[in-house]
Design a protein around this nucleic acid. Structure first.
Length: 476
RNA sequence: GCCAGAGUAGCUCAGUGGUAGAGCGCUCGUUUCAUAAGCGAGUUGUCAUGGGUUCGAUUCCCAUCUUUGGCACCA
């Protein structure tokens, strides 16, 4: 039995969750469940990033108190757990006390690499953001069409440059493994372009008083990424009175996996590693970078109005149907596309007509003909099941391919039934073997599906036990 | 602009120096245990475009186009 730490990234709470957030959570959950089934000691954590200035701006726009606004959205994210049958062991909000303590401890642990520097830039008051000269249009803010003002500010910087060679080597040698390769290449080329120190604080004024104080300098707030990344270890009690979990699952443990979206790879694969190196804390083992979900080929965005609400989707189709679509139709490490048409085709052909129908026809015949299914399965079936089991294990992390293998076993069973025509057999003996083969496979399929579709897996087991057919997925 | 990846049947993708495959969809046939499901057969492609290397390229090389991503203090 080994310890495994698994994290999802922590999304901003400036809006409700969409299908893209759910993709990552379902992927991470599937892996967490898989390892628990293998007997590993899993700690799976998710959370919300609540200190960003974006949250403050969104709250203001909505005319709400920032804390209330953030809380409301936090609830929407947290409840995804029940919605999608997720199994995090902990959920950390970055406005929690434990996170503040941990973030500040990490800052202090990096103190030798932190220094103060004057920074000047073109600042748009409307956007509350700095712009680079080349981003301006005719010297004006592209958003507000006003002339930005030259602002000078003294901020804290982190000596990222110092870690360039070290990080490069760590990534090249897969000491920290970035999956897939293309994302690793991207990071390497970024590093090769030269790492510069980065700003890790902003003035209280610019942060609107929202965020975590820089230790021993309450005139500044920590830049949101510096605090946010530490959530992973803070959830394990880093900085608290009892750091035993932190030691057990992080510092003295190798198996640590971050699930992130492609947009935040750099923060994890470069900044985070540098911060940990600086603080003398051990590094994650794997960074698993997934893609984004488009809707009918377009980016999901509020302005287009094509944002898919996971709550509505689950309400309409059910939890496992949504989990199945995300894991089967969206390639694990690339972008994928959602449309209701694709969703329903997938649902009908794989879930209703595939596993659902196979179970249904099997149970009905066993029940009607009162067939004994306790016979030893034939070698053909034992071998076939073993073969699929191994393939699923091998391809597991490429969820779509692993599920494809499970479905090939379903198809194998359907063909076998067709060939044997058990409905035309009166002889109980012949049917006993046939259905022992099939139920043996169905039980196996149920086992294989446990991490992916936990509810469905349970239902299959139950139906075989009580022999009462109940559609797993009613056809749409 | 620079760098990297991708461009193969309606869709999602696999693949190979010797004139292409899977699943889904669709059409037809067939079975009846089943959620009008299952099974079988069939269907479609200038393998992005233009050159080059080669006896021969979709597969190698070059260019072009399209597309996706990265190009730091902005998730």
């Amino acid at each position: 039995m080994k310890n495994i730490f698994i994290s999802s990234s922590i999304p901003f709470v400036n809006a409700s969750p969409h299908l893209g957030h759910v993709l990552e959570l379902v992927q991470a959950d599937t892996v967490a469940r898989y390892h628990r089934l293998l007997g590993d000691n899993v700690f799976f954590v998710s959370g919300t990033d609540e200190n960003s200035l974006k949250n403050v701006q969104s709250a203001e726009k909505a005319g709400e108190n920032v804390s209330d606004f953030v809380y409301k959205n936090y609830i929407n994210f947290f409840q995804l757990k029940d919605l999608l049958n997720l199994t995090y062991d902990d959920f950390i909000r970055t406005t929690e006390q434990r996170h503040f303590i941990g973030a500040q401890k990490l800052w202090k642990a990096c103190a030798k690499d932190i220094y103060k520097k004057k920074y000047s830039g073109l600042y748009c008051v409307g956007c509350e953001e700095y712009y680079k000269e080349e981003e301006l249009i005719d010297g004006m803010c592209p958003e507000h069409k006003t002339k930005p003002i030259l602002v000078e500010e003294e901020n804290y910087f982190f000596k990222l440059s110092k870690y360039q060679d070290k990080i490069k080597k760590i990534i090249e040698t897969d000491e920290v493994k970035i999956i897939p390769q293309s994302r690793k290449n991207e990071i390497l080329s970024f590093i090769n372009s030269g790492l510069q120190d980065f700003c890790i604080s902003r003035t209280n004024e610019r942060a609107k008083g929202w965020g975590i104080d820089v230790p021993e300098d309450s005139s500044q707030k920590m830049w949101v990424w510096f605090d946010a990344l530490s959530n992973y270890i803070n959830a394990l009690g880093y900085g608290s009175n009892d750091e035993s979990k932190f030691n057990e699952f992080w510092n003295e443990n190798k198996d640590k996996v971050h699930f992130i979206g492609k947009g935040i790879n750099r923060f994890h694969s470069v900044y985070w590693l540098a911060m940990l190196l600086s603080a003398g804390i051990s590094l994650p083992k794997t960074i698993f970078v997934h893609g984004y979900i488009t809707v009918d080929g377009q980016k999901m965005s509020k302005s287009i109005g094509n944002v898919i609400d996971p709550y509505k989707l689950v309400e309409k189709y059910g939890c496992d149907a949504v989990r199945y679509f995300l894991l089967r139709e969206i390639p694990a490490l690339e972008d994928g596309d959602f449309t209701f048409d694709k969703f329903e085709k997938r649902y009908n052909s794989d879930l209703a007509d595939g596993i659902g129908n196979l179970l249904s026809r099997t149970i009905t015949m066993i029940d009607k003909k009162n067939i004994n299914i306790d016979k030893e399965p034939e070698e053909l079936f034992i071998n076939k099941n073993k073969e699929i089991e191994e393939k699923v294990k091998e391809k597991f992390i490429y969820f779509n391919e692993a599920l494809d293998e499970v479905w090939s076993l379903i198809s194998f069973c359907d063909k076998y039934i067709e060939e044997k025509k058990p409905w035309a057999i009166d002889d109980a003996n012949g049917n006993e073997i046939i259905f022992s083969n099939i139920t043996y496979s169905l039980k196996n399929i149920s086992q294989l599906l446990r991490p992916f579709l936990p509810e469905t897996s349970k239902k299959i087991e139950e139906q075989i036990k009580i022999l009462k057919p109940e559609p797993l997925f009613p056809r749409i």
